[in-house]
Nucleic acid binder design. Structure first.
Length: 944
DNA sequence: ATATTCACG
DNA sequence: ACGTACGTGAATATG
């Protein structure tokens, strides 16, 4: 019998199993998520059963950095932290593997693919047929030995797949598997953050290798490669060299394949029984262990520990011992080696607890012009948490921490003692994401009267595209690694701890350090504001907006649950009807919500389109645009699209919104992200209230659920009219467009008249519609192809329209060129308020990459100026409402719209106040007027 | 975690 | 030959 060795890439399989099951999670009676354990065990067992390996080993990655990480800091730097449930599953899985009497192999400094590659070749040399079980395409490079294969386990509805060298070569379009690393070196790999050559993708890489055979030879001949491709390659020599090295799997890892170790042996049944019982694998347990297995029996006690390690020992240190028991001890937070963190810089952090101490601190801080502060809470949701403590710092290295005990009376008393500080007007409050802290304090009826300096926002205007967690900023600007919050309360997830339960001494170190670091960050970032000339947008727009957003988030909006519940039932019914009609027409039942299954039904079973579009993963595309183009209005298409619409509305809005209602206020409190959108816009999340439906009848209904706080109130909605087009007209100074706005014309009709060379009265609906599409397309830098696609017209017609447009509105054409040229020269574009966006790819040799940057150069100043304008308006309106002591509140912002919850007695005061401030917030050049419209009603739909 | 789809301005 | 309109957030499937 031939010897078949299977080597499993454990982490890759665990990830897949975990996420494949996440929608119907397996939770034990103790509340433990066992997705990964279940999925992995299932895969392992099926593999053993079906493929009948004679030998098997499971390979893990370790936390230790590898040479790839030390050589190239960006390697896998884009990876998110694994979820806690997943990390906690690893000891269980290793224990199950031991139960099957299968060795786990891992080695510090090497990744699983290195270990697997090395073992695979050794075993193949020894006459084995070797299957590397992994979804990872990089393994293709290892198929040099004719007896080594890749075994892709079933996933996404695909069957398992065995890849040999030929299949891998066909897949990539190469002639030898050795070229897999050359391909990866040229094209990079987004998953692992391997750069490759900018602008070289899979196709180009394959073409180059066809001609030059190896990456080295491509680079050696770079000088003779013509055109932009040659330039790209010449610019990417270093990146390609690094990338190839990163993608190359190491095959001389110090591990030794021993036949005996990897041989499948008798299972350790008691051990498996115990694991399966603990994890509550009922049917799976029976399937594996037979009917005698009963998941509810008491776990057998006293399993002999020497059964765990006997395979392992012959592999010396390369094999990890299974944990003696499932990780019950949670004294240390997993996943982080505490000794690696460097937070031992000399500092003086003091605990301030008694009334006397607090009064002393207040007295001291009252003389400070700038105070850095931070709050600690027992929950991330600022609208649903208690204050656990506050830290203050005015001098680098010195900080104070005031703990707030569970007694809310005492917490209020502490805040009372601090009130002279909070009420002080001539003080600058420095913090990182101050909105959060202000919101927490607002629930205690505390408002900061001084000015705000938010370091997160400073970084936002200095580097709009960067990421800006405290940890990253500290590393980037202070070269200092602070205490991670995970060290105190664990990672995000259901078992995340609570700051309240952490010993005060530990919280003090963490909290005081945060205030200390934030103060130092302010000093590091501040010069950058002037240097990059973004201090205006920072001090006039972003910082003053913090208080406005705090108040808006605090207010929230009332949502009519009854209405939504009723509407949910209606949508449910209609969606179900659509669904059954689809199954009837298709002649099969399947999961209509699965694009993959739908694609197969439409394009294979029903043969609706012989040349159906595929997505990049090789599935059929089933997006709305694709379906709409399907053969002559097939009724099944209509039902599918309606089903999609109804289920989208139901799951994203109608059913989700009631669950977001705050238990204290009975209202929905969105959170505005002020430092996310690169153009300067806000974004909204938890829930997103900036994408509530309006375009379809059934979607629009949802707006009826947004209602005033009570019968004495109404909602007001005020929105800018054509603001982005006005901004284009104004900053381009195009005479025709400016004139149209000055005369108060309908801009799309006026555009159509110019483009078609006719009088405005003669413009048809069709022509106006097309002109409108051009107007919007221009804002985004759309070309003839896009316009044609959008309007369903020929590319020639689209080109004619665009050419006419550019001729009639030559100023706008010039604006677009000017923006691109400005960006090419200066490396950035900017808004009217001086908000900047840097475009590093603007001079890229790659057409696609550069084109993207060019469209950004056109769009960002427009979108960003509109964002500046409404932000300024919000600041003004908020200030005016406060000054007038109104009881009405601004509650929502939707990019060009503001929504207010208005007491009816204040309607007449408020309407002009809102409109006037919106209009004058940011005057446009070339006398282009800014217009805003306003409506009111008993719900958002009616107010619109 | 990744891919696809779709809601808004 | 390639890709083709900017900016977001959220839900779904996936074994």
């Amino acid at each position: 019998m031939s010897k078949k060795l299977f080597l499993l890439d454990a982490m890759a399989l665990i990830y897949r199993a975990y996420y494949a099951l996440i929608r119907s999670p397996r939770i034990t009676s103790k509340g433990k998520n066992t997705n990964a354990q279940f999925g992995f065990t299932n895969t392992l067992y099926d593999l053993i059963n079906k493929e009948k390996p004679t030998h098997l080993a499971v390979c893990f990655d370790t936390h230790a950095p590898t040479e790839r990480h030390t050589d190239f800091s960006e390697y896998k730097a884009n990876r998110q932290e694994a979820p806690e449930d997943l990390l906690e599953s690893i000891p269980d899985i290793q224990r199950i593997i031991k139960g099957f009497n299968i060795p786990c192999v891992e080695l510090d400094g090497y990744e699983a693919d290195d270990v697997i590659g090395t073992l695979a070749w050794q075993a193949a040399d020894a006459g084995y047929e070797v299957y590397m079980v992994t979804p990872d395409k990089d393994y293709g490079q290892l198929l040099i030995h004719p007896n080594v294969f890749i075994y892709k386990p079933p996933y996404m509805g695909n069957k398992e797949e065995i890849l040999d060298a030929q299949k891998v070569c066909d897949k990539w379009g190469i002639s030898r598997v050795q070229q897999v690393v050359d391909i990866l070196g040229l094209m990079g790999d987004a998953v692992d953050n391997i750069p490759g050559i900018a602008g070289v993708g899979e196709k180009t890489a394959a073409k180059l290798l066809k001609e030059y055979d190896t990456l080295e030879n491509v680079l050696a001949n770079a000088a003779s490669i013509k055109g932009s491709l040659g330039e790209k390659i010449r610019n990417g020599i270093e990146a390609a060299t690094i990338s190839k090295k990163l993608a190359t799997i190491i095959t001389d890892v110090p591990v030794q394949f021993h036949e005996e170790d990897f041989k499948l042996k008798e299972w350790n049944r008691p051990e498996l029984e115990e694991s399966f019982t603990e994890l509550e694998f009922k049917s799976l347990g029976k399937r594996i262990l037979g009917d005698s297995f009963n998941a509810f029996q008491t776990a057998p006690q006293g399993v002999q520990t020497d059964l765990f390690g006997n395979v392992v020992d012959t592999l010396q240190n390369t094999v990890k011992k299974a944990p003696a028991a499932a990780a019950e001890d949670d004294s240390e937070v997993t996943g982080l080696s505490a000794d690696k963190n460097i937070h031992n810089t000399p500092h003086q952090y003091e605990l301030v607890e008694t009334d006397e101490q607090i009064i002393g601190l207040v007295k001291q801080l009252l003389s400070e012009p700038e105070i850095c502060f931070d709050t600690e809470t027992n929950n991330l949701d600022a609208n649903d948490c208690e204050l656990v403590g506050m830290s203050f710092s005015c001098k680098p290295g010195v900080a104070y921490y005031i703990p707030c005990p569970a007694s809310q009376d005492r917490t209020k008393a502490i805040l009372q003692l601090l009130s002279p500080l909070f009420n002080k007007t001539d003080v600058l409050w420095i913090g990182q994401n101050v909105k959060y802290d202000m919101l927490v304090l607002k629930w205690y009826n505390v408002e900061l009267k001084g000015n705000i300096y938010d370091t997160m926002l400073a970084h936002y205007v200095v580097e709009p595209e960067g990421r800006r967690s405290m940890d990253l900023l500290s590393a980037q600007y202070l070269q200092y690694e602070p205490v991670h919050i995970e060290e105190l309360i664990g990672k995000k997830g259901k078992s995340q701890g609570n700051m309240r339960d952490v010993p005060v001494e530990k919280v003090k170190e963490y909290a005081a350090e945060d205030a200390d670091i934030t103060l130092q960050l302010k000093h590091a970032l501040h010069p950058q504001l002037k240097l990059k000339a973004v201090d205006d947008v920072f001090s006039k727009v972003e910082n003053p907006l913090v208080k406005v957003l705090t108040d808006m988030e605090f207010e929230g909006v009332r949502v009519d649950i009854n209405f939504l519940q009723e509407y949910s039932r209606e949508l449910e019914k209609d969606a179900a009807a659509c669904e059954s009609r689809v199954y009837e027409q298709a002649g099969v039942k399947f999961n209509l919500a699965s694009p993959k299954q739908l694609g197969e039904v439409l394009f294979e079973k029903l043969q609706l389109d012989p040349k159906a579009k595929k997505t990049k993963t090789g599935q059929y595309a089933t997006g709305e645009d694709v379906l709409m183009k399907l053969s002559n209005n097939n009724p099944i298409v209509e039902d599918i699209l309606t089903f999609r619409e109804l289920t989208k509305l139901k799951s994203t809005y109608v059913d989700a919104l009631p669950q977001m209602i705050n238990r204290k206020t009975g209202r929905v409190h969105t959170s505005y992200a002020q430092a996310v959108a690169v153009t300067g816009r806000l974004s909204s999340n938890n829930p997103n209230l900036q994408n509530i439906p309006i375009r379809t009848d059934r979607g629009r209904e949802i707006r009826k659920a947004f209602v005033p706080r009570d019968a004495e109130h109404l909602l007001i909605s005020a929105d800018y009219s054509q603001i982005e087009l006005r901004i284009v007209a104004a900053i381009s100074g195009d005479p025709n467009m400016c004139e149209a706005f000055k005369l108060g014309k309908d801009i799309h009709t006026a555009t159509a008249a110019k483009v078609y060379g006719i009088a405005e009265e003669e413009v048809t609906k069709e022509q106006r519609y097309k002109a409108k599409s051009v107007n919007f397309g221009i804002i985004y830098g759309q070309g003839a192809f896009g316009l044609a696609d959008n309007l369903g017209i020929s590319r020639t017609e689209a080109k004619t329209i665009i050419d006419n447009y550019k001729k009639e509105f030559s100023g706008i054409n010039k604006y677009m060129d000017d923006m691109i040229n400005f960006a090419k020269e200066h490396g950035y574009v900017q808004t009217l308020m001086g908000r900047k966006r840097w475009l590093k790819d603007i001079n890229s040799a790659n057409f696609t990459v550069r084109g993207f940057a060019e469209r950004n150069a056109i769009n960002s100043p427009i979108q960003g100026t509109a964002a500046d304008m409404i932000k300024m308006a919000m600041i003004r309106i908020h200030e005016a409402m406060k000054k007038e002591n109104l009881r009405s509140r601004m509650i929502l912002q939707v990019h060009d719209e503001l929504v207010f919850d208005v007491h009816q007695s204040e309607l007449d005061t408020l309407k002009p106040l809102i409109l006037e401030n919106m209009k004058i917030a940011l005057p446009l050049p070339n006398e282009v007027p800014v217009e805003a419209e306003l409506g009111s009603g008993i719900n958002w739909l009616e107010a619109h």
